[in-house]
Write a protein that binds this DNA or RNA. Sequence first.
DNA 1: GCCAATTGCTTGAAGTTTAAAGAAATTGCA
DNA 2: TGCAATTTCTTTAAACTTCAAGCAATTGGC
Lengths: 164, 164
Amino acid sequence: MILDSETKAVELPDDHGTELRLWLRLLTCTTLIEGEVRSRLREKFDVTLPRFDLMAQLDKVSDGMTLSDLSKRMMVSNGNVTGLVERLVESGHLDRRTSETDRRVQFIRLTKTGRAEFRKMAAEHEKWIADVFGDLSPKDIRELMRLLAKAKGSAQRSAKARNA
Amino acid sequence: MILDSETKAVELPDDHGTELRLWLRLLTCTTLIEGEVRSRLREKFDVTLPRFDLMAQLDKVSDGMTLSDLSKRMMVSNGNVTGLVERLVESGHLDRRTSETDRRVQFIRLTKTGRAEFRKMAAEHEKWIADVFGDLSPKDIRELMRLLAKAKGSAQRSAKARNA
DNA sequence: GCCAATTGCTTGAAGTTTAAAGAAATTGCA
DNA sequence: TGCAATTTCTTTAAACTTCAAGCAATTGGC
């Protein structure tokens, strides 16, 4: 243990162990919950998590969204979205139509069926998540929200600095 | 807004919106950081995140680990680990040897080169993570650690209940 | 000892993901 | 206008991932 002149524990200048442990814990939590959601989606609705996530993005809007929008919001690559959308159009959940002003752009929407199916899944999903966080008090949740918002801001700042 | 008899805002019995928002925020944070780490690993060391993660598990022990151990610790499927290990043995980072008491079991270790390479990457990685969380105070970090531990426990309870 | 159940790992199919390269269309600026 | 840069989307190859099925070895009753 290293002590400073006032006999208080201090960190070594290059010890970033606490941040690393925080990251590992964050990752563990997310992986755990994600795995749980994935299992349940497959089990109850025979749908994959990426498809659910994509539909969730589309359900937020009424009039559709471009592939680029989807890719940004989902934080995955363009090519990835191309494939996902393709399969979901194939299965009748989505609908695509080319923009009239820019022929590169495709507007993607949920079909009637797609939206209905998604809403059913989303209702269940919300209950699962509530149960997953069931041991947390409202205050815990507020605090977590606040701290994660701060963490998100910090991470964005860090990422931005690297790409500058 | 719904108010109870003492004029205090209350939630609808089935509104689990706060938990859902918490989950989305947790997911966003993790995805953001994971993407950042992935990019940097590729850029600076030309290594993928899954390989780094696997080596990180092995670096914690001196004498090796079985595939099952790896799969449990990494929270991924068995088949996944089989493939990752295969490629890392191929590239000379890992070493495998069959147990003498149970011929189903394979002990996996980092090779000398593998460990040296990993240590170099890990040192950088730790700095990146410290920067990612750079805006958080020590108190923020402690609080996040505590709340995430609670969330993890809650999620485990929930998962366990489902599989019971 | 026998054999059913379990455990450790591999395989194969389907799907997801990234990175990189490329095609098509639009934009902006000289 | 002309054309270089940018944007949108697709394509490709390689890797990653899960799930389910299967094989080989071990374990635990009996």
